[in-house]
Amino acid sequence: MATRDSGGGQQHTNRQADEVEEVAAEGNEASDLKERHEKLSEDVDSLLDEIDDVLEENAEEFVKGYVQKGGE
């Protein structure tokens, strides 16, 4: 960082241009991510409906009853 700050005027300009580009790239990435996540959560909603249909009844009793002996 220190060496970059001590650079001449020309370098300074270049660096700023780079920074602007970087920010822009991150901006796009973030909105892509958001879109992807929204699509993903719509998907998940319809999936949950299906899972509801196959999940075992009475979750609490079912997981309490799942007791194993040691293996290996």
Partner: peptide, 26 residues
Amino acid sequence: LSILEGYRSRDALAWDSPRLELVDLQ
């Protein structure tokens, strides 16, 4: 995790919910 997070947000379930443990098992 994506299924579990789905249940957590849809049904407001905490991580100690037996339903989440059932999803894990099943």
